[in-house]
């Protein structure tokens, strides 16, 4: 599997450029973080990668084929989208929600049966949330709901997972659970692309990063991309990168110091 974005640029009708010069390559097991200030086009970029929006310039290719030319049913069996937990209408049980992830696979006239329910259970078990199966989606916590949405994306055994701010609106512990899940999935060979507001999360979990900011894009390996200078330029925030090392664990964090006016 190779997902490739080449010289991508996008602007909404009659409006300024949202982003340009975005180029990166994703292969199995990659974790790609997309950073940038509010309104920089992070979600827009995700939608372009999903083929929901059309790039103004450049290409999005999956195994050298234009994403928008791949039939939707085929594309969305290989690429799964995980929306933000707060944006979803939670009217169903966890099981029903996870089964929706099979919509691209099942023909219009079919409903999921025993075999599909078994697959839903496997997906839930993998994420350690099988106990939620009969719960109602509006009766579980935000962290649990985010995990359910990841399970919904996983049930179709995708090669690429695209997540829109998966750890936003979550508490400390649940953020860690979601990030650990990404790491685990990438070790299984699933490529993960996610938007985030936390440069530290990108540093800790991703191996590639993209920083979008007003007509200025940086893409590349995470360590060469997320630097104090790059953060300063993109966010107008003075920051340092700190490394904590206790001999066993080494954790890098981006510490914001002050706003630059």
């Amino acid at each position: 599997m190779k997902l490739e974005i080449r010289n991508a640029a996008f602007s909404y009708k009659n409006d300024r450029r949202i982003f340009e010069d975005v180029s990166f390559e994703v292969s199995a097991g990659d974790v790609v973080a997309i950073l940038g200030p509010n309104g920089a086009g992070k979600t827009t970029l995700l939608k372009c990668i999903l083929g929901i929006l059309k790039l103004e310039e450049g290409e999005a290719l999956l195994d050298d084929k234009d994403i928008r030319k791949i039939p939707e049913r085929e594309l969305f069996r290989r690429v799964s989208y995980v929306p933000q937990a707060k944006n979803t209408t939670a009217g169903y049980t966890v099981l029903d929600t996870v089964l929706i992830g099979l919509a691209a696979e099942l023909s219009v006239f079919r409903s999921p049966g025993e075999a599909e329910i078994e697959r839903a259970k496997v997906a839930l078990r993998e994420l350690g949330i099988e106990h939620l199966i009969d719960k109602h989606c509006n009766k579980i916590s935000g962290g649990e709901l985010q995990m359910v949405l990841i399970a919904r994306a996983l049930i179709s055994s995708p090669e690429v997972l695209i997540l829109d701010e998966p750890e936003s609106n979550l508490d400390f512990r649940n953020q860690l659970i979601v990030l650990d899940t990404l790491t685990k999935l990438s070790k299984r060979g699933i490529a993960c692309i996610f938007n985030t507001h936390y440069p530290s999360h990108a540093l800790q979990r991703a191996n590639k990063a993209i920083i979008l900011s007003d007509g200025h894009t940086v893409c590349g390996d995470v360590d060469s991309t997320i630097t104090a200078e790059a953060i300063e330029k993109a966010f107008n925030v003075k920051a340092i990168i700190n490394e904590y090392n206790d001999g066993e664990n080494s954790v890098k964090t981006v510490v914001p110091l002050s706003v630059i006016n």
Binding site: I52, F76, Y81, P83, N87, T88, D96, A104, L106, S111
Partner: peptide, 17 residues
């Protein structure tokens, strides 16, 4: 069964293929 998709967000429906 497919009607379950209807109340979801636009992006969710589209990305369900």
């Amino acid at each position: 069964w497919r009607m379950n998709l209807l109340p979801l967000t636009e992006d969710e429906i589209k990305s369900s293929g």
